[in-house]
Design a protein around this nucleic acid. Structure first.
Length: 572
RNA sequence: CGGGGCGUGGCGCAGUUUGGCUAGCGCGUCGGCUUUGGGAGCCGAAGGUCGCCGGUUCGAGUCCGGCCGCCCCGACCA
């Protein structure tokens, strides 16, 4: 390909709204352009990269025995009502009606479609196991798109679905996908961590996320410094502390103290002159089964996902101000477990067990209680793991490890779904004994477009992108510095043609630009290898080769240049 | 949706506080001459409903009201 016949509109400066390196560089380099917040076009260069990534995903999925198919973006409301997700899926799908008034959504995912599709024709265990996948644009009505290609409203996703007769079969299908994912991300040059994760609105178990580590990631993951424990922060477990010895001489009764206007932990600590770890926060939630008060140490954050999971209350919601006032008899900000409405179930984080003589809200406006103790002053329904993990926490899995946090971009997510969708959508097949049984499903997603952002986040420098060869838009760029010199043009054309015949993806920069422009563009766009043909070539008969990644270079004769290029590409 | 910031030729910005004449600068683009191995120099040119609507005023990029869009933090989230 000749650059004079291609289209790479590079920008010397990044648009002001681009904040993170991947967004700045992909836009400056002429890969993508925004159309609206979280909606992007892929220019020819960006589309090549997208296609490269897609092909790697496709090859590994095919190698794992998955079959590619292609499903619609628009999905009818009735289908989603059968699975019960029309009103509950978060974020809410983008919806619309056709002219006859029939309702659709722009598919944010395809469990419903694939399950009904497979259910139509698969009727026997003899047709299983089966794993199918597609690479399709998905739509999510994000409350806030951000971070260039990282969090968008419209994006390319590979989604795969496995169908098995039983849990053992599912386990095997899941393993295959897990292994394929490891290979896919490795081939794309991504450094990833595989972590435990929350299933969210998909519903599922044994879920694992593949996280590309990056300081610009939106997720936090925790890893153990001594064992293999790794988890998304949203579900990282906390080890219950060793039971503390209850000191003699506990307060005999709580003492009420006046704390006017102190509605936050911060305010209470200042007023009473004590650390937040002597306080207990009381957070009120409503669930389908009634109200719950969740207690965590004052300096900790409650993890709602963990609370919802341990209460088995997926509909968990923070109580409204009115509900809080009704249950506590006080303004919001003074809730406590002592004397709260007896309809409220009280659960506490494990750490509370190690506390004594602590401070809680008094269920009275402008007042707190000091010297409060579990068992004496109020009864607890349960101790649970409720708080967010923090840097330095003891590892929940091994004895000696400590957790440390990393930022990361979620690029893959695999779940075991079970029979939730096949039961709702009649995904039944006959087993060996002629019994109708719901197929057991797994689902497996990869954010293909998001991977591009992750790759750039992990592989760039101050000058531009450094593409891994596997996904680079071109493997080598040939810079013809003097396009007016016939002899040099012949050499450049020759190298270009020769490389192309050898199967190398080569771009010839034959533009009538100055050398500096060509060097800068080449570094910005990030071709793994660069060949320079200029006046030195005329003088010495040599071509200069340089690797983008580490600047390692070589000077070779014109007639051996192509072979050396191929050799140098081996390591990239 | 809460808080903050921004919106001026393709890109980056100044000008808005304190209203005033033909709305500037750098980059890019087009033409010419020179230059030619790290974003060149000179000369000339094109390109702007100052986000939109309404209002105040002799006069609005600038003041007032409403709306829209974009970015960041939060809430939320495969």
């Amino acid at each position: 390909m000749r650059l004079s016949e291609f289209y790479i509109p590079t920008l010397r400066e990044a648009p002001g709204e681009a904040q993170i390196p991947s967004d700045k560089l992909l836009r400056r380099g002429g890969f993508i352009r925004p159309l609206a917040a979280g909606v992007f076009s892929y220019l020819p260069l960006g589309y090549i990269v997208l296609d490269r990534v897609e092909q790697i995903v496709r090859e590994e999925m095919n190698a794992a025995g998955a079959l590619e198919l292609f499903m619609p973006v628009m999905q009818p409301r009735e289908l989603w009502e059968r699975s019960g997700r029309w009103d509950t899926f978060e974020p809410q799908p983008i919806r619309f009606k056709d002219r006859s008034g029939r309702e659709f959504c722009m598919g944010p995912t395809h469990e419903e479609v694939i399950t009904s599709l497979i259910a139509e024709d698969v009727t026997s265990y003899k047709q299983l196991p089966m794993t199918v996948y597609q690479i399709q644009t998905k739509f999510r009505d994000e409350l806030r798109a951000r971070g260039g290609l990282i969090r968008v409203k419209e994006f390319l996703m590979k989604d795969a679905y496995s169908f098995d007769m039983d849990r053992d079969g599912l386990d095997q299908s899941y393993e295959k996908m897990y292994d394929a994912y490891v290979r896919i991300f490795e081939r794309c040059g991504l450094s990833t961590e595989i972590v435990r994760a929350d299933a969210g609105s998909m519903g599922g178990f044994d879920t694992r996320e593949f996280m590309a580590t990056s300081e610009n990631g939106e997720d936090t993951i925790y890893k153990c410094d001594s064992c293999d424990y790794a988890s998304n922060a949203e579900c990282a477990a906390c080890r219950a502390p060793e039971p503390a010895e209850q000191p003699a001489g506990l307060a005999t009764a709580p003492e009420i103290v006046s704390t006017p206007g102190a509605k936050s932990i911060e305010a209470v600590t200042q007023l009473l002159g004590m650390n937040a770890d002597r306080l207990v926060k009381t957070l009120l939630y409503s669930t389908a089964d009634g109200f719950v008060a969740a207690l965590v140490r004052g300096d900790r954050d409650l993890n709602e996902a963990k609370l919802a999971t341990s209460l088995q209350a997926p509909d968990l919601q923070m109580a409204t101000d009115a509900q809080v006032e009704e249950l506590t008899g006080a303004e919001v900000g003074y809730a406590g477990p002592v004397g709260i409405d007896d309809r409220v179930r009280i659960v506490a984080d494990h750490e509370i067990a190690a506390m004594h003589d602590f401070v809680v809200g008094a269920n009275r406006t402008d007042a707190h209680l000091m010297g409060v103790n579990v068992g004496k002053d109020f009864q607890l329904d349960d101790y649970l793991d409720l708080r967010n993990a923090e840097d330095g926490d003891a590892c929940p899995q091994c004895a000696q490890g400590k957790l440390y946090g990393l930022r990361a971009i979620e690029i893959g997510h695999i779940f075991k779904l079970g029979t939730r969708y096949t039961e709702a959508l009649d995904g039944l097949v006959q087993d060996e004994s002629g019994q109708q049984r719901p197929m057991v499903m797994g689902c497996y997603g990869i954010g293909v477009s998001r991977m591009i952002a992750a790759i750039v986040e992990q592989s760039h420098d101050e000058r531009g992108i450094i593409w891994p060869r596997s996904v680079a838009p071109f493997e080598v760029v040939v810079l013809l510095l003097d396009p007016h010199e016939d002899e040099l043009c012949r050499i450049a054309d020759g190298l270009h043609d020769q490389l192309q015949e050898m199967g190398v993806r080569v771009l010839l920069d034959d533009r009538p630009e100055r050398a500096g422009v060509k060097f800068h563009d080449a570094e910005l766009v990030g071709y793994p290898l660069r060949a320079v043909i200029g006046k030195r070539t005329k003088e010495t008969g040599q071509i200069e080769l340089q690797r983008r990644r580490d600047g390692v270079d070589d000077t070779v004769n014109v007639d051996t240049a192509a072979d050396t290029v191929v050799e140098m590409l081996q390591d990239l």
